[in-house]
Simulated assay, not measured.
Amino acid sequence: MAKVKYYYDAENLAYRVIKHTRRKKIGVALLFLAASALFGFLCFVVLLNTPFFETPKDKLQAREIENLKINYEILNRRMEQVNEVLADVEERDNNIYRTYFNASPIPEEQRKAGFGGVNRYRELEGYNNSELVINTTKKLDIISKELVVQSKSLDEIAKLAKAKEKLLAAIPAIQPVKNEDLRQVASGFGYRSDPFTKIRKFHAGMDFSARTGTPVYATGDGVVSAADNRMSGYGNRIVIRHGYGYETLYAHLSRFKARPGQRVKRGDIIGYVGSTGRSEAPHLHYEVHKNGEAINPINFYYGNISAKEYILISKLANQENQSLD
């Protein structure tokens, strides 16, 4: 049974029953429902923003964020390892590769130069893990730039290596007659007695005594510039231009196996030993020229003889005996 409520009527000095109209009852009920709904909504919002109430979706997102953090940490460690390897390559590049090929080292400030100007990472700001993402992105950008610099340096080294390879192949580096085909080193570079006049004069090459028809080899890569007998006293002679200022001459040949304009490689047979021209016996007269000046061929046999053989040939070549031409 509902409670009966009274109010005091001051005019009549009596208590009277409070009578509620239907409209008022409905209004009160609606007000109560509205207040309850608002209170419930506020409680729901509070619960959503507390760690004590997580939906399955929130839990999934939290796990994904945690996995991303772990992946970023692993990526950072790997980038540190890459950076260590790159630093080692850079050190070898500056102190070994570029030094060997006479190239200037790349300055450290050029390798480690940063990125100036506008903020490159503005779009990554404003998130919970922005600092982690920005730092990782910066490291990746720096490594990428260093790799570009190093890649260009290695491209330059590769070009220098090719040029060096051509130079090494061009320099005369072997004997023009094989040791097993030699009778002896008849005469060396320097002042020798002329076999015809017996006068002491300068001998601009080395004489290799061998049988007529013994193969004569190109001592370095180059192009045959002459294969004729137009030079007085030399008989049949071949001249090879190797480039880089080097030129070699092979004289008194019995016959040619190379022609003018032909490109030859070190070790190719270019002719055969003979005794043509001003010659006392079958032999090869061999000269090496650098920038137009005759130099001692004894310094250019490191490619196919041992140290003992070099010492023996050097002793024989340095004896002031009679030349064969």
Rank of each mutant, 00 (worst) to 15 (best):
K178P: 02
R211C: 00
F32T: 13
L60M: 06
N299L: 07
A251V: 00
T137K: 02
D207Q: 11
E156T: 04
N12T: 04
P105V: 03
P56R: 12
Y310D: 12
G235Y: 00
L312M: 13
D221Q: 04
L132N: 02
G233H: 02
P260H: 10
R230E: 03
I171F: 04
V4P: 00
E287G: 00
V118P: 07
L30C: 12
I305D: 08
Y302G: 05
G220A: 10
V17W: 05
G220M: 13
P195R: 07
R237P: 02
P105E: 07
D194T: 01
I157S: 01
E156K: 01
Y7F: 14
R259P: 02
R120Y: 15
Y6T: 12
M231H: 09
I134N: 04
V177L: 06
A103W: 02
F208I: 00
G205N: 09
L154N: 07
P107D: 05
Y250S: 08
N71T: 13
I96C: 06
R183T: 06
R16W: 05
S323W: 15
E293H: 05
F32C: 15
D58W: 12
K315S: 14
Y8W: 15
T55V: 11
L182M: 12
G222Y: 10
L132M: 15
D221V: 00
G303Y: 03
G27N: 05
Y15L: 11
P260K: 15
F202E: 13
R92V: 03
A87N: 12
F115H: 10
L68A: 11
N67L: 13
P260N: 12
E91S: 14
V17M: 09
R16V: 08
K290F: 15
G213M: 07
V89N: 04
I134S: 10
H20W: 15
G205K: 05
M231V: 00
K69H: 10
G274S: 07
S254C: 01
R237F: 12
E54Y: 08
T214Q: 03
R63M: 13
E73L: 14
L182G: 05
V216T: 01
A258K: 02
K59F: 07
I74R: 13
A170K: 05
A226N: 09
N102G: 09
G243L: 12
E11N: 08
Y72I: 13
A251F: 05
S144R: 08
E125C: 11
G116Y: 12
T99D: 05
D325C: 08
P176D: 10
A218Y: 10
G271R: 06
G114A: 09
V82E: 07
E293V: 13
V17P: 06
E64C: 08
K201P: 00
G271C: 12
A158L: 15
S279K: 03
K162V: 12
S275D: 04
N304Q: 13
L30I: 15
Y244W: 10
V45G: 03
S130C: 01
E320G: 11
S187W: 06
T197M: 08
S193I: 08
I174L: 02
V239W: 00
G205S: 11
E91N: 13
I142Y: 04
